[in-house]
Design a binder for these strands. Sequence first.
RNA 1: GCCCCCAUCGUCUAGAGGCCUAGGACAACAGCCUUUCACGCUGCCAACAGGGAUUCGAAUUCCCUUGGGGGUACCA
Length: 489
Amino acid sequence: MTQQIRTRFAPSPTGFLHVGSIRTALFAWLFARHNGGVFVLRIEDTDATRKVEGAVEAIQEDLRWLNLDWDEGPAVGGKFGPYIQSERLGNYKAAAEKLLAQGAAYKCYCSQERLENMREFQNKNKLPSGYDRCCRDLTEDERAQKEKEGITPVVRLKTALQGQTVIHDLIWGDVVFQNNLVEDLVLLKSDGYPTYHLANIVDDHDMEITHVIRAEEWMSSTPCHIMLYNAMGYAVPQFAHLPMLLGSDRSKLGKRHGSTSIRQFREQGYLPETMINFLALLGWSLDDKTEIISREDLIKHFSLERVSKTAAIFNHEKLQWMNGQYMRKLAQEELLNRVMPFLEKGLPAEINRPLDINYVRQIVPLIRERISTLKDAATYASFFFLDELEYDSEMFVGNKMTAETALKALKAAEEKLSALESFTQGSLEATLRPLAGDLGIKTGQLFNPLRVATTAREAAPPLFETMAVLGKERCLKRIKAALAKLAGN
RNA sequence: GCCCCCAUCGUCUAGAGGCCUAGGACAACAGCCUUUCACGCUGCCAACAGGGAUUCGAAUUCCCUUGGGGGUACCA
């Protein structure tokens, strides 16, 4: 019986979750689920200055939206709780004290100013960067002196000065670092909070995390983490560093690249299943052809071996295409339910709320092939709801068309339609198609002005279905308005 | 500057020495379908960064160059 696999996602509550973080969460979650393991959510709020109000709740909401469930963490608890680091401060302090006592760490009294000067000097003289270990070998007297001066020290790790540390990464293989280049990182800040480095190691150990799955940007501090594990007498977990997510200019995906928080994608009308599928394929692939893959298959087939090492650019076009795929795959009623809130929110203010769901139910099949996000529905379908349409008379005069033919066509259509009892796709087509012939014009020459009259759009769903949904009264009213507009020009 | 890493079509990727005249997808382009727009379908453009080495044989192994990314905080 092998050890139960436990992974965690450990975001800091500094705002809405970034899609890159979500990708990390997804991979950690998939790895746990694939292996029948445990997925832990832990909040890393050790930077008091960056904490954002409500972020802890927002993180959970986004994860729930994506259906990435956690077995232990905020809201669900667990035997290793609490899962919020600011509630575990005692643990880190104890760890720091233990390291201090065994001589594996030391107090550093250097001022910010001195550190800045040091960095500048190092850079200028092409020296390796890192703390110069000024306080590492302070004598008892020197330390007493500093304390007397009232300086609150930080605690730094006493890293090995020689030899090398090897990371056995599940994705990158063995990566070797020279120990003398590993910095004496700060473990405990002067405000009493731990840094990420300390808190992370202590919690991952206490929470029995077996696989640390995190972003590539953590690679370079991993040697230090390994030293920390060793100094604490902890077993070193397995590491898997995920390749970066880049923006279109190949730099770290950030605000400059448009939407980056998962919340923004949600608000733009992307489906959670799209986001999961899309993100899973950023750095992982099943084979040489699979693009659309279900959550179940993802769990079934996910493996770290198939994670690539190359950073990936976030491709919005492909995401949009994929969202269209998922939207079209949704059952009619399901799509209706998802679209409703976006219509309620996105339709022009003058339209009466709440919307009639039975009316929207007729509209959804007409627009589903024509929109690629839920949000698109509001702009695309607004003409179904508006009382007064705004016509651009140019639109009536399309290819091989004059205002006169358009006027003639609309006039004739109005008469025919007024007399029509049943207003269905079939009856409309049966009435209007022959009419074109009677008028001696092509069907397009009749249908196009009619489309513009009833929708005020050049691109709209199929005419007869659209008119049937709009209903006789609305259609006639719009045709009259169009006629007036045309006559006026 | 210093440390670490990466390198296949514009983009996401398949490829773990002969199956590769390098496959799939998005995008682009050209068609078909069609009352518009879409959807769908068909076709097409397009890549192994460069140079050495190993080998009968290299996209696949090694080295160098170049390019790119990440780190270099009392942030995570």
